[in-house]
Simulated assay, not measured.
Amino acid sequence: MRVIQSKAFKADNAWGALDIANMNGITTRLHWTDQPYKWHINDGEEVFVVLDGVVEMRFKDDGMEQSTLLNVGDIFYASVGTEHVAHPVGEARILVIEQEGSV
């Protein structure tokens, strides 16, 4: 049993993470960041939930760059092969569920 106060979590560096669970190779991690990530494609599917802050999610659809603004409670689902990058607006805390070892 574990209770995590996500608003209290702050990593030492951008995209630092608190490992919450690994369920048969699917990880759940709480990330803190105030900097963009990098363009990437995950090895599998990814669920990205904004818990605190605002994140501009940029992604490519048929080679065309698009973006959407994610607020608290919003969820971004990246299917296999979806190239994307997260740009926080200030500080953000994000719950990420993905295959273990994914980028």
Rank of each mutant, 00 (worst) to 15 (best):
E46G: 02
L51G: 07
A92L: 13
L70K: 07
T27A: 07
E83Q: 11
S102T: 06
I97C: 09
R29Q: 12
I94S: 12
V85F: 00
T82H: 02
I4E: 04
L51T: 08
E100Q: 13
E100M: 05
I26T: 14
G73S: 03
K60Y: 00
G16F: 07
V96K: 03
M1T: 09
T28H: 07
Q5S: 10
H31K: 06
Y77C: 08
D62Q: 15
M57A: 15
L30M: 10
E45N: 01
V50N: 11
S79I: 00
H87A: 02
D34M: 02
S67Q: 14
K7M: 09
Q5C: 07
D52A: 05
V96D: 04
T28F: 10
R93L: 05
V72G: 04
A11N: 00
V54R: 09
Y77R: 13
A21M: 12
V47K: 01
Q99W: 02
W39R: 02
L30S: 08
T33D: 06
V80D: 04
G44L: 04
V54W: 06
V55Q: 11
M64G: 04
G53I: 12
I94A: 11
T33I: 06
N71L: 03
M57N: 09
N13V: 14
V49Q: 06
K7C: 02
G25H: 11
S67K: 15
